[in-house]
């Protein structure tokens, strides 16, 4: 423990002063940012499209003076009290450090610094790099663009299936203050070069996501992997597997999970249900064979129905 921290830990008045600064910051949050109003507007939307959510979020990124004010306030508070920690969830990835500003059902907004040295280090490590399409739309306001050059790509989902290959779609030089929309269901970007750190206000639209995120090999541009585009989908898969592991053939839970929006979740749930209680799952299997909107699932269900022995 350094001497400054030791002194602060031993000084109740100093700690109380720090807490007061943090509390004042939190109180100012509702007064000084448009985020509470955004939360109210988004909470009123039941099942919006990505475009409807983006229409509410975009004005906050177009007029981002409030976000610049947050940065200035954070810097001022840390200078005033080095033990000040903002009452916001920290966000960290291997290339950025930031703060969560808003998290709701339909959108997430974060403010982060894309650090040049971390980006360079990641590029040096990645011999077998890839191009990822996250499956959701994003709006990104480059408060500081870092002189970055982005390569743009098209791929992801089209006509109900992931494309086998992605394609280059040009180069974009990011300007300070620029707002870019990235529909991660079908488009993506890589930061090819940057001259300095990037300060990004980033809104992720959680409505209208593609069934999966897609990852393409950087060299061959071929699809190499897909992953769930929503946390809910993976939770549903994990919970149905847990029910099976606990030997709990809960028909309501498996029935609901087998009607999830994502085909891979529906099939995962039905497989677990069949393994646990084939007769209880048989009707749902038949429904899926007849009428599931996904042709692969219809075929799989017919194959499974034919291969599963009839009850004795």
């Amino acid at each position: 423990m350094g001497p400054a921290l030791a002194a602060w830990m031993g000084d109740a008045a100093a700690r109380a002063k720090t807490r007061a600064i943090v509390s004042a910051f939190a109180r100012g949050w509702a007064r000084d940012t448009p985020l509470p109003a955004l939360a109210c507007a988004l909470d009123r939307l039941a099942e919006p499209t990505a475009e409807e959510v983006a229409a509410h979020v975009r004005p906050l990124l177009e007029d981002a003076g409030w976000a610049e004010a947050i940065v200035a306030r954070l810097v001022a508070e840390v200078r005033r009290d080095p033990f000040f920690e903002p009452p916001l969830v920290p966000l960290h990835s291997d290339v950025q450090a930031g703060l969560l500003l808003y998290a709701g059902r339909h959108a997430v907004i974060g403010l982060g610094v894309g650090a040049l040295d971390r980006m360079a280090a990641k590029k040096r490590r990645r011999i077998d790099g890839s191009i990822a399409f996250p499956g959701h739309a994003s709006l990104i306001r480059a408060l500081r663009g870092g002189g970055a050059t982005l390569s743009l790509w098209t791929g992801g989902w089209r006509d109900g299936a992931p494309l086998d290959r992605c394609q280059a779609a040009g180069i974009h030089r990011l300007r300070d203050g620029e707002l870019i929309a990235v529909d991660g269901r079908t488009t993506s970007f890589l930061v090819d070069h940057a001259r300095s750190d990037m300060l990004l206000l980033h809104a992720t639209i959680l409505a209208g996501t593609a069934p999966t995120a897609c990852e393409y090999d950087r060299a061959t541009l071929r699809l190499t992997a897909t992953g769930a585009a929503s946390e809910r989908a993976s939770r549903t898969q994990l919970l149905t597997t847990l029910l099976a592991a606990l030997d709990r053939p809960d028909a309501d839970a498996f029935g609901a999970a087998s009607r999830a929006a994502e085909p891979f979740v529906r099939w995962h749930a039905l497989r677990e249900w069949l393994a646990l209680d084939a007769d209880a799952a048989a009707r749902r299997l038949d429904e899926m064979a007849q009428a599931d909107p996904d042709p692969e699932l219809r075929a799989l269900a017919r194959t499974a129905a034919a291969s599963i022995p009839c009850p004795a």
Partner: peptide, 11 residues
Amino acid sequence: EVGGSICFSAV
């Protein structure tokens, strides 16, 4: 790689 809005994403 760096980009793709995954590594910058809060999600």
